[in-house]
Amino acid sequence: MRVTDQQMFSTLTWRINRNWERLEKVQDQIASGQKINKPSDDPVSSARTGILDETLSRLDDMDRTADKASGFLEATEGALGQVSDLLIRARELAVQGASDGYDAQDRDDMAIEVRAMFDQLVALGNLDVNGRYVFAGFLSDQPAFQADGTYNGDSNELELRVSPGLQVKATLAGGQVFGAAGGGTDIFAVLDGLATALETDNTANIQNALDGLDTSLTQINSARSLVGSRLDSVQLAKGWNDRLRTGAKTQRADVRDLDLGKASMELAMAQQALQATLASTPRMMAQSLLNYL
């Protein structure tokens, strides 16, 4: 084949350009630490990366709502714990009040303590987390209970999404927990009854209140275990989110991230090829019959 001067020059420039191009691409990847810098580098993987990015940001959202859900549930749990302590104390008072070892004055003192408990119970029922009255159902902008124990809320429970596709109820409706709305015992009425019985020295009614306190305690304890199991669900969901996150990150790394060792090798090779081309080019160009004529 004839090799002409223009042909040689254009081939030489083409080779140099090609080597530069290769070097630049590797350099670009190393600089960003990613194999894919533009959708056109690999359209399928770049869409995959985008979806994984979205999954990861979604999981962060879920974690934040999960934190809010556990915030509500832990506050509820704490309040119910105090209610339970309060009922145990009321039960002690009732047992003492029912025995003959105490006189009317003692019972009046006990009644005063029980009345104070009643107010504490109202305060606990009006628990407020970040401006939301958690026991008030959806009517969460006003206190759940009036001072006389009347329930202001409704029977709804706030549901939150804590993991993709998983919703957990984050509140309890106060009407069911403290009142008789769910077919249970009205704890306010029990305490009120106990106080009245103590004030009137009516031992039979004190005895009745004692039974009422027992069912109240059971009611509170079952509410506490419900809250506990919901908290467990939230924790499980967070764990599940973590697993999903790790999975998504691993996948994204596989698809997108650069194998630095491989890239460095590629860089060294591209560099070497470019150097060799550059070094040989002037020698090629120097060849001419004109040198000898």
Partner: peptide, 12 residues
């Protein structure tokens, strides 16, 4: 993302 990937594929 599928639409953006189509554009990327066109460019590729």
């Amino acid at each position: 993302l599928a639409s953006e990937s189509d554009l990327g594929a066109g460019l590729q």
